[in-house]
C-alpha cells in the first residue's frame, strides 16, 4: 500500500494545519483533475498516517481501501466512486468532501458541518478556503442531516466555476470568525 510517511510530505500540515497543494496531489484519497471534471467524486484529504479505517467500511461500493495496516492512508478508487457522499459524515476527522466540477458555470462542494443553526437550501453563505479565508459567496443547494449522519450535516454548496477544490468551509452571514482582523 501507499507509504507516504516521509518527513517532507508531512511538514506542511504539521506546520500550519493545512495540507499543501503538493500534499494533496500526492494524497491517494484525492482524485485527479480529469476525474473531478467527470462528475461528483469523494476527495479524501487524509494526508497523515493515523490509526483509523472508518471510511473504508462506510463505502457501499468498496471504493475506499485502507487494507490490513490501519495507518495506511485511504486510497480512493475514483472510477468506482460515484460521489454519493455517504463517507462524508463518517470520517471522524471531517476530512472528506465531495466535489463536482462537471458543471459549465458552477462547481459543487459537499462539506461536513457540525454547527447550529444549519443553513437552509437557497441561503447565501460566506465560503472559506482551507485557511479560513473568505473566497466567495456560495448558495446552499442541499442540507443533508439524515439521522444516520449522527449530527454531522452534509451541506452542498454551489460555488463559481474553478473554486470546487478551494472551498472547504463556510460561515453563515454574520457568524464569521472576526479574530483575523486583529
Amino acid at each position: 500500500m501507499t507509504n507516504l510517511s516521509n518527513n517532507k510530505f508531512e511538514v506542511t500540515i504539521r506546520r500550519c494545519g493545512v495540507p499543501s497543494d503538493e500534499e494533496l496531489v500526492r494524497c491517494p484519497g484525492v482524485p485527479n483533475t480529469k476525474r473531478l471534471h467527470q462528475g461528483p467524486v469523494a476527495v479524501i484529504e487524509c494526508v497523515e498516517e493515523i490509526p483509523c479505517n472508518v471510511c473504508e467500511v462506510s463505502c457501499p461500493r468498496g471504493a475506499i481501501r485502507i487494507g490490513k495496516k490501519i495507518t495506511n492512508l485511504p486510497m480512493l478508487d475514483s472510477q468506482s466512486c460515484v460521489g454519493c457522499g455517504l463517507c462524508i459524515p463518517k470520517c471522524p476527522g471531517l476530512a472528506i468532501f465531495v466535489v463536482d466540477q462537471s458543471g459549465k458555470d458552477i462547481d459543487k462542494v459537499s462539506i461536513p458541518y457540525e454547527f447550529l443553526p444549519l443553513p437552509k437550501p437557497g441561503q447565501i453563505v460566506t465560503a472559506l478556503d482551507r485557511n479560513g479565508q473568505p473566497v466567495c459567496d456560495a448558495r446552499v443547494e442541499r442540507v443533508n442531516n439524515d439521522p444516520r449522519n449522527d449530527r454531522t450535516a452534509v451541506v452542498t454548496l454551489l460555488v463559481p466555476k474553478g473554486l470546487g477544490m478551494k472551498v472547504r468551509f463556510f460561515w453563515l452571514k454574520g457568524e464569521e470568525q472576526d479574530v483575523q482582523r486583529e
Binding site: 508531512e10 500540515i13 504539521r14 500550519c16 494545519g17 493545512v18 495540507p19 484529504e45 487524509c46 494526508v47 497523515e48 493515523i50 470520517c91 471522524p92 476527522g93 471531517l94 476530512a95 472559506l128 478556503d129 482551507r130 485557511n131 479560513g132 479565508q133 472547504r168 468551509f169 460561515w171 464569521e176 470568525q177 479574530v179 483575523q180
Partner: peptide
C-alpha cells in the same frame, strides 16, 4: 493534522 485542519478552515 485533520483536527488542525478543522480549526484552520474555520479561520
Amino acid at each position: 493534522g485533520v483536527h488542525a485542519s478543522k480549526i484552520r478552515r474555520m479561520g
